[in-house]
Design a protein around this nucleic acid. Sequence first.
RNA 1: GGACGGUUAGCUCAGUUGGUAGAGCAUCCCCUUGACGUGGGGAGGGUCAGAGGUUCGAAUCCUCUAUCGUCCACCA
Length: 743
Amino acid sequence: MIENTANIPPEFLEPYKPSTYEPEIRSRWIDSDYANPDTCEKAGVVDSSLPAFSMVLPPPNVTGSLHTGHALTCTIEDVMTRHVRMQGRRTLWLPGTDHAAIATQSKVEKIIEKEGLKKSEMGREAFLARVHEFATNSHDTIVSQVRAMGASVDWSREAYTLDDARSLAVRTAFKTMYDDGLIIRGYRVINWDAKGQTTISDDELVYEDRKGMLYTFRYSHEFPIPISTTRPETKIGDCAVAVHPSDERYKQYIGQTFKARFCDTDLEIRVIADIAVDPEFGTGALGVTPAHSIIDWQMSQTHNLPIIPVINEYAKICDDERYPEYLRGKKVLDAREMVVEWIREQGLMIEEKEVDQSVATAERTGAIIEPLPKLQWFIDVNKPFSMRHSNITGISTGDTVTLKDLMLAVVTTNQINFLPERFAESYTKWIENLRPWCISRQIWFGHRIPVWTRDGEEFCGVDAPTGDGWEQDPDSLDTWFSSGLWTFSTLGWPNTDAIDFKTFHPTSIIETGYDILPFWVARMILMSTYLLGEIPFKTVYLHGMVLTADGKKMSKSLGNAAKDPVELIETYGADALRMALIVANGPGQSIKLGEEKIKAYSKFSNKLWNITRFVLEQTSGEPLYSVDQISGSDIATWSEFKEIQNQINTEMNKYQYHLASEKLYHYIWHTYADTVIEDVKKRIQSNDTTAGSGKALLQNILITNIKLLHPFMPHITEYTWGLLPAEWKIDENKLLMVCKWPT
RNA sequence: GGACGGUUAGCUCAGUUGGUAGAGCAUCCCCUUGACGUGGGGAGGGUCAGAGGUUCGAAUCCUCUAUCGUCCACCA
């Protein structure tokens, strides 16, 4: 065996070192600015006859640092991006961050709490300054993490859901909806978080299974119908008893009104019939408390019942003189005890039974939710309006539609496709059950509602009204309002003449975790179809969750979040982490990420490194042998490789990266290295006449493999590419990330 | 209560138009001054959750059951 190390780059004499080479490669990419499609166009690496490709990075919340779930997002999206960029398409992958209103504010509240500070004492300005400082730090961490993954996003277009451009988009969107009558202010029973002192949406609720007591009793000895409840303390606000219309036991009382003195409070109870009542549950009769139950509130609307508040924003009994003094100001649980005691004393209690119940709690603060009637801003998804402009198939400009119609139409007509397809069904169901979307939040951090009032006058505008005495609504917007605009607020909207907007909208694909399908994906569809009359993206690719090694969902509250991706990158390399995340992990599938798998792919990096070294040793100083020089039995080997390459291309085009990456890995290691190289090695050593053909085979398969592997393992392939002799690269003596994709 | 997903080798999982069961890790054996010990070669290990059906043929399609999980709804 001839040792031919003199002519090969010295790096190859040692094992591949990701921690040394990866940062170097990343700075080469940044210097090149090839992630910016404008730069690619100037450099002439774009084929302008091909359609542009665009995608937004789901903006991570500025609530801290990224976890392995984000690493998965970065990996899949970077694979997509690098693949299409190498195909010569104008390619934009646009990064940014999300201010995440409630999540960020409550995080900072917890931090200042530890310092013995309170936001009410700090005041709005000082507190917000503190939140911005925190958000900025988080942002910087996130940016460095996204970079460390090797993500080829275009930083020159970076956006933030709360920056000036996005704020303008938010105010414009709000005003448009307001003018169309789709944003309305209403007194509704909403989910009130007494701890966070804010409204929260249905999506921010977490249900906890608990044991609770179900009490069955009568309001008074004279009252004919016994009722059951788990919340006796709210019963002092009852105004009706609802029964099923066909319930024989109570039919005779329907329509009658009874007076009762319940817990030293005067009640006037009407018996109403409503099909929402389950005759099998409890006594089959439901005490209606419109102010503190969403269902009851809905009944109060149909039956025109009074709304009597019992509980205030601090989860205490209202200080109202209709209630006895001993209850006023008492906490809910204390009041419950007292009311239960009163019922028992009066001999009105019929049964006390332990039941399973799931209690709604606030995702961020953990507080038990109090349904409360409050004045809030809503987007009415069921209200018909006239479509200003439409590029949506099946919906014409001027058509009368609802937001719900729009959200359903684009999916049922396949203008937007889901991957995996099954999610289209869950999307449709979710939309069909959609209620008015409560968009106001009683928090300081976020987009303030662009509505001003003065002496009963109301003004909604993109800018504040002129003149004195106007006061802006103190509430801010649900964070999903601004993220719903993300696919076009990042491209220059509301300026519809912006070049980016014209070039890159609708975006090609949205790629995100399936857990935010209803919150984010649905709202982007809402905003885009309504405001632009366009779909926001053609395909929705949903990946699964990255679970801990024991199969649990990672959560900060459980403290079981896996290692920081950056730590894994330092140990094994970003390329190894990317492969571990993408191989055999199909769309919609959750994966348990074990460190063993990452380690295995770091070995693969070294294998590829040594394969390259070997090929260089065998052919260094020699030119690139042409494919035409492959002859004899090597032709079959080359065909076999081309077949694998075709399969990989097919899978890549169908977003089946989990299959393509594994196929490539397997081919490189177990066919190319184990069989092809071993075979050619023997022929070279024995100076066989077919050695030249063998060398052509080795070189050409290597070069193509490096390209095919680039989207998955961009660092090592780029670095290796840089070390290959210039004469091997023909017309492509440039960065691999803009070389031509092999077909 | 509703919907969806999983159940394949000890572990983690591939297996997309139905055609003789695959990978990584782990285990065991052998090799190795060789491009690579972050290596190479090999072996053991599965009635593809269970039952039934369609088919010449089913891990794959259909029905049911079990079991684990996720989401949604309800919870007076």
